[in-house]
C-alpha cells in the first residue's frame, strides 16, 4: 500500500519533469553548446557580445523596463484584485473589462497600441484636438520611448497579475476579517494588518513569475519601438540571429540573459527566505 503511494508520487513528479526536460530544457542545453562554438570551442561569442556597446545598452534598458513594468502592473493588479474581490461584487462589465487585455491576442494588442502611439496616431490626434502639441511617444532611444513600452507591457499583463493576486486574496479566510472587524479595525487597518501580510506569499509568487517574463520582454519592444529604438537583451539576441545571421553570438546573448534572470531570481528567493516570518499561503513554495 505504502509502496504504491510512493510510486504514484514519484510518477507524479517524474512525468511532468521529464516532459519539461524534453521539450524545453534539452533544446536549451543545445543552445548553450552552440553559444560556445566559433571555429571549435571558444569564448569568442561571449567576448564579442560583452564588448558590444549595444549589448551594454540593452542590459541597462532591460533592467529599467522590467522594473518600470513590474511596478505599474503590481500597483494596478493589486488595485484591480481588491476591486474584484470586494464584498460588493464588481459589475459584470467591470469583470470582463479588467480581464480584456488578456484575451486580445498579444500581436493584435501590440499593433493596436502602436497605432495609438505613432507620431500620427490616435493619442497625438486626441492631443491635437484639444490644442496640445504632438509628443514623440516612440522616438528611438528616448526615455519616453522606454516609458511607453513599459506602460503598454504593464497594460497587457495587469490582468494576469490581478488573477494571481486574486487567488491569494481568496485564500484569506473570511473569519480573519470578522475578527479584525470585532477588534474595531477600519478598512485601512484591515488591509494593512490582514490583507497585505497574508498576501505576501502570493505577491512573491507572482513577482517571481512575472519578473522572469518582464526580463524576457520581447514582442512589446519589437512591435512598438523596433530592436534599435529601445534595445533590450532579447531583441539584441533576436537582431543578431535574424538580421545579422550570427546564430552563435545570438545564443551567447540568450545564455547571458538567462543567467541574469536566474541570478536575480535566486537573489529574490534568498531574500524571501531570510525575511520570511511565518508560513501559510499557497505560493510560499516559490521561495523554496
Amino acid at each position: 500500500m505504502r509502496r504504491a503511494g510512493r510510486f504514484l508520487r514519484l510518477s507524479c513528479l517524474g512525468l511532468p519533469l521529464g516532459f519539461l526536460a524534453i521539450t524545453l530544457i534539452l533544446p536549451l542545453l543545445s543552445g548553450v553548446i552552440l553559444s560556445f562554438q566559433a571555429d571549435g570551442f571558444s569564448l569568442e561569442n561571449y567576448r564579442f557580445v560583452l564588448g558590444d556597446s549595444l549589448f551594454r545598452r540593452s542590459v541597462y534598458n532591460t533592467l529599467i523596463l522590467a522594473a518600470a513594468s513590474l511596478v505599474v502592473e503590481f500597483v494596478w493588479g493589486l488595485i484591480f484584485a481588491l476591486l474584484l474581490s470586494s464584498r460588493r461584487r464588481a459589475s459584470f462589465v467591470t469583470e470582463v473589462s479588467v480581464l480584456m487585455p488578456l484575451l486580445i491576442p498579444e500581436i493584435v494588442f501590440l499593433s493596436v497600441a502602436r497605432y495609438i502611439l505613432l507620431p500620427r496616431g490616435y493619442l497625438n490626434g486626441a492631443l491635437a484636438a484639444v490644442g496640445l502639441p504632438a509628443v514623440g511617444w516612440l522616438d528611438p532611444r528616448s526615455a519616453l520611448c522606454l516609458l511607453s513600452v513599459a506602460l503598454v507591457d504593464a497594460w497587457r499583463v495587469t490582468p494576469m497579475v490581478t488573477l494571481l493576486l486574486l487567488d491569494g486574496l481568496q485564500g484569506i479566510p473570511a473569519e480573519l476579517y470578522e475578527a479584525a472587524l470585532l477588534d474595531g479595525a477600519g478598512s485601512f487597518a484591515q488591509s494593512r494588518y490582514v490583507t497585505l501580510p497574508l498576501l505576501k506569499p502570493a505577491l512573491y509568487g507572482a513577482l517571481v513569475l512575472r519578473g522572469v517574463d518582464a526580463l524576457r520582454i520581447f514582442s512589446t519592444v519589437l512591435v512598438l519601438a523596433g530592436p534599435e529604438g529601445a534595445p533590450v537583451m532579447s531583441t539584441y539576441a533576436y537582431q543578431l540571429w535574424g538580421d545579422a545571421m550570427e546564430e552563435h553570438r545570438a545564443m551567447a546573448a540568450s545564455v547571458l540573459l538567462a543567467t541574469m534572470i536566474g541570478t536575480l531570481g535566486a537573489v529574490v528567493i534568498a531574500f524571501r527566505a531570510r525575511t520570511r516570518a511565518s508560513g501559510g499561503g499557497a505560493l510560499e513554495g516559490l521561495s523554496g
Binding site: 524545453l24 533544446p27 536549451l28 517571481v208 532579447s234 533576436y238 540571429w241 540568450s254 540573459l257 523554496g288
Partner: peptide, 22 residues
C-alpha cells in the same frame, strides 16, 4: 517541491529564440 520549483523556474528562463531553433 524543491525539484519541481527548480524545473518550473528553469523552464521559464531562456528567451524564446534560444529554445525555438534547436
Amino acid at each position: 517541491r524543491r525539484w519541481g520549483l527548480a524545473a518550473l523556474t528553469a523552464s521559464r528562463l531562456l528567451p524564446m529564440i534560444a529554445v525555438a531553433l534547436p
